Every structure is written in C-alpha cells, then in structure tokens.
Amino acid sequence: MRLFSVLLLSCASPLLFAADLPGSHDLPIVPRMPDAQIVDYRPPAEMERIYPMGSIRKISGQLRFDGQVGARGTTTSVTYELPPEHSSIAAFTAAREALQGQGAELLFWCQARDCGESSLWANEVFGNAKLYGADAQQAYLLLRRAAPNDNSLVALYSITRGNRRAYLHVEQFDASTPLGELLPTSATLLRQLKDTGELDLPKLGGEPQPSWLTLLSRGLNLDTTLRVSVSGPNAEAWRQALIGQGVRAARMETGGSEAPGLRLELLR
C-alpha cells in the first residue's frame, strides 16, 4: 500500500506540488488564478521604463512602435505559469476585469499578431525569455490605475508557448513624478467596445472635448458596421459632435442621462 501511494504521488501533475519561486509574492492589485505558480519575480527596483502603445517591430536593430509611455519610477513584476486547464487569454481577461473593476483606465490593448513579434515583447520589453511564444497566442495591455494611484501603471502580457505552457506576466510601475494626461489609442477604445459591449468614460460628463472626439470618431470609423447608443448627461451633444467628426448619424442612438459620464454601448 505504501509503495502504491508513492507511485501515485509520482504520477500526479507537477503543478499540484510546484512551489512559488523563493522570495516571491503576488501583486495585491491582481488576484492569482487558482493553481497558478510564480516562476519569475522581480522585486521593486528604480529604473527608467518605456511601455509601448503600438505594434512593435525591429528596424535596423532598433525597436520601433507608434506610441509609448515613458518615465522613471519603481517597477515590480511577477510571472505566473498557469495550470493546464486554464488558457493564457482566460488569465489575461480575468486580470483585466479585476483591474477595471478597481477603476483602472485602458491605455493600449492588442492581441495576437496585432502586437507584433512575441520575441520582442519577451526579450526587449520585459527581459524574460519565458514569455516568448507564438505571435498568434499573445495579448498585451497597459492600464493606468485610478486616483489617488493614477501615477501608477500596470502592464499585462499573456502568452502560450509552443509546448502549450501558458504564462501571465503582471508588471506594476509607480512613477516618481506625475504622469500627466495619458490618452488611449482609438484602436484600444474600439477593441474594448467590441470585446465587452460597452465603453464607460466617467470623466467625460461635460461638454465634448476635442481630443476625445478625435479618438472616439476614429475608433468608431475603424469598423463602420457597428451601431452604438450614446448615454450620459451630455449624450446628445456628444452624438452631434461625433456626427460632425464623420460618424454617420444612423450608427448612433441617444440613450439615457443616468450614466455619470459618457457611456457607449454596442447595439447588437
């Protein structure tokens, strides 16, 4: 019986008994997926950090991307290997929803080949070879935490490698100086709208702002098949302003005024 028990334990999944990397711990802002283990941990360190806000590529040996957020501050990161029953995108989605539930704002979101080469994200951006996998199996997200922690950014990167092992990388950056105004990309606004069915912008309760009008109109016109309802205290003013920016009137309906700010909902 004792021999049988030993054989049974030796055949069990290694993840069941795997321990976290010594000295590592979770970041409080992102809950751990059940049975995930920490395989890489970088304690708080002060550094200059640049986070891409566009697809990355290498040209003449230099890393290139369309936009970025850069500052000096303290960076802490943790990388999880996920259990076989959970996909990298499921862990990515759970982390995103948890952060948005805390009021974090999306700045940039890409998935699969829209992100560029996984090898560049793994080695050039995060300096972690464990994160190198198939370009089609990656996702990246950059968020800004809600006030009073709005000088803090969170980067998420998920990947499934060729051996089917899945990873989620979580990185928190606390800037030493105020980050100022940071705006999302139009493609990110569209991705959130299509993925979640809604776009909540609580800070936009007043009259239409030119910078946001440009972002929203460009995002909506990236997919002209979509129809949305526009809600909030100044919903009709935003709707008319978006029409003035080239969004067809037939694609938008005016919703209620109960939302604290501007709210766009996808009409199925």
Rank of each mutant, 00 (worst) to 15 (best):
A146R: 08
R191L: 09
L142N: 01
N151I: 10
L182A: 07
P233R: 13
A237Y: 00
G244M: 08
E181K: 15
L204Q: 03
A175Q: 10
L153R: 03
L201V: 06
G205L: 00
S231I: 04
S211I: 12
Q245P: 01
P202S: 05
L142V: 14
L193A: 03
D195H: 13
P178R: 15
P233W: 04
S211H: 10
R165C: 08
L213R: 10
T196N: 12
G246V: 06
G197T: 07
G180N: 08
R218H: 10
Q209E: 15
S152E: 14
N221L: 11
S231R: 04
G219W: 00
T185N: 02
L141Y: 08
L193D: 00
G180A: 11
A155G: 07
L179R: 10
L242N: 02
L190I: 01
D223T: 10
I159E: 02
R191G: 05
V230H: 01
R164E: 14
T177S: 15
Q138T: 04
N151W: 06
Q137M: 11
D195T: 13
V154S: 04
W212E: 01
L179C: 07
P184K: 08
E198T: 08
S211Q: 14
S231A: 15
Q240D: 14
Q172R: 13
P202L: 01
D195E: 13
S152Y: 00
N163H: 07
F173M: 07
L168M: 09
F173E: 02
L142T: 03
S231V: 08
A147S: 13
S186W: 00
S152T: 14
L156G: 05
L220P: 02
W212Y: 13
G197V: 05
A187S: 14
G197I: 04
L190A: 07
K203T: 03
H169T: 11
